[in-house]
Write a protein that binds this DNA or RNA. Structure first.
Lengths: 335, 335
DNA sequence: CTGAAAGCGCTTACAG
DNA sequence: CTGAAAGCGCTTACAG
């Protein structure tokens, strides 16, 4: 069975391929009569345009890429789900499709960024921007429209991004802990290479500063953003007999690990150790004890980022802009 | 700045485009000398093949689609994360990319299946197959390779699929509840249109049968697979003064809703009401109380399905086959 | 309102 | 080992 192409349709109706194309796209007026005949033939033949050919000819794919975290992180942290669904809902509205790339850069196999850039996408959403992010550099060089989900390390004035004001979020959370009498607060941050981590640290330090308190450099630790690392790192801290009375973590997943370590060591939460996390994903209200967490409005961030990207792709926005979403602290049992 | 194409490279080196193509793909032997010059030019010019053009010419996209649930469901249930990461990891290994489609079929806008089928993908993974699934029909007609994540309603002998033995899982779970003395067990199932729901019900009924017990038809209720529906439906059941002493739910998300209703109504779990769910996602061990759940090995299912699909696409498998993954019951506090 | 034709940028028999 | 050329199936100025 031969493939049904635009020519099959054109021949059957007795018009040119161009006419069929125009009738289908509506980019030119076609007489009602001809149009009807074409639509009929399309139905009869069950013709569907080959999208790859269309993409090549029109230089447009109606597809957007989402450069996400590692699969291990995706698996554990439903923060991703909120971003993803925000993105999906907007793209659906705007008639775009989504390609999801997980981050395997730490892999041996290492799918280099180059590989990605050759993909047929109109633009890309980049989660977790890093310091000196190679991927961003490449996207820039190639002139692929992109929007950061997060804050860029530099050139903030020249890049499109949407982020939560996580600095203010941490500032408020640490202030809150200080107001509760805590003086020694551990910051269990994510990898230093992420701008996200940096922004958290800034808020954390500022809170100490503004309260006239010194902040112990040893109180800041970096772990990968997975539960196991939170668990192990905190177990070690406990064994080193930390005199901290509170901890604030990079995300909810790490907090779950931390709380597991605390339970293992029979440390009472929140009386001996208060725990605050960021993300406010489902687990924070389901965990025992429930976890105080900074809500970052991930769904909103995802949808705003997708909207921005589509606007940039379609040149409805041409001056770099960004949006910073406010956070709020959801107080629960762990603090 | 003009776009750098294969011709740009060919001209600079002084060979034909064909030679460049072969040198890059390795599909034909090219003299070491020429090849080196080509590679050098590629580097200098920073040439990257246009994938859309390649796709069109080679009739291959190295892309696979994942037809998932509604975004609301994705947002709440990290079961999806496990499937997704299993799929992603295998595809990465096999050099395929992933396109994610959420299910908006219940939407007013209703992106019809037709729309999807025109997408440039080599094959598709379909989650949550339904009874009389229109989408599957279309994929079939179009001869697009597909693998079901779940069991097909019919033609099981002619379709590729991977599923967990959820019937056995429910059978075991209900047996377990019966052995604990429960006689009136509610099945809070998913929508009847899903084959998944059907398979659960079969296991549920069989357990009653094999224990010589009658199963009250009113004990089976259908809800959408989101927390809110589990909550509302169970609240209603409680108000109707059900004499059930146990409930088994379609998934973990619904169970969370059910448990919330129980807490609201101050019904003791597990003494007044035992709860068993399916999915064994992170929340089941984090919830208070922890939730007894049927582990379906979602990550394994996702990865096996992706492997199968790639094998089908690459014609390394040509006879319909399927794999049924065993489940196991993870006993916890809720039962 | 409609058509002929060039063009999108690759791949791949085919011929040498 | 290398090249000329057709072909993938669309879209879109351009001309009428």
């Amino acid at each position: 069975m031969k493939k049904i192409t635009i020519d099959t349709v054109a021949k059957r109706v007795g018009v040119s391929a161009a006419t069929v194309s125009y009738a289908l796209s509506g980019k030119k007026k076609i007489s009602a009569e001809t149009k009807e005949k074409i639509l009929e033939a399309v139905k009869e033949l069950d013709y569907r345009p080959d999208i790859t050919a269309r993409n090549l000819a029109s230089n447009k794919t109606w597809t957007v890429g989402l450069y996400a975290s590692s699969t291990q992180n995706i698996r554990e942290d439903s923060f991703f789900n909120n971003i993803l669904t925000g993105v999906l809902d907007v793209l659906h509205e705007r008639n775009y499709q989504l390609m999801v790339y997980a981050d395997y850069s730490s892999d041996s196999k290492g799918s280099s960024p180059e590989f990605r850039l050759t993909q047929p996408i109109d633009g890309v959403l980049i989660m977790n921007p890093r310091i000196n992010d190679v991927y961003i550099e490449h996207v820039k060089e190639r002139n692929i429209p992109y929007v950061l989900i997060g804050t860029p390390e530099k050139d903030a004035g020249e890049t499109y991004f949407v982020d939560s004001d996580i600095t203010a979020g941490y500032y408020a959370a640490v202030n809150y802990l200080i107001s509760k009498g805590h003086r020694n607060i551990i910051l269990m941050n994510g990898p230093a290479e992420y701008v996200q981590s940096e922004n958290r640290e800034i808020g954390y330090r500022q809170a100490f500063l503004d309260n006239g308190l010194a902040c112990d450099e040893h109180s800041i630790v970096h772990v990968r953003m997975v539960e196991e690392d939170g668990y192990r790192a905190f177990l070690q801290l406990l064994q080193e007999k930390t005199n901290a009375t509170a901890v604030i973590t990079f995300n909810d997943t790490i907090a779950v690990g931390v709380l597991r370590a605390l339970r293992d060591q029979k440390v009472n939460v929140p009386h001996k150790m208060a725990v605050v996390s960021a993300g406010n994903t489902m687990i924070t209200r389901i965990h025992n004890p429930t976890i105080t967490s900074i809500d970052m409005n991930a769904y909103i961030i995802g949808s705003k980022a997708a909207e921005l990207l589509v606007d940039v792709i379609e040149k409805r926005r041409m001056q770099p802009s960004h949006e910073i979403i406010q956070t709020h602290l959801e107080e629960r049992e762990s603090s």
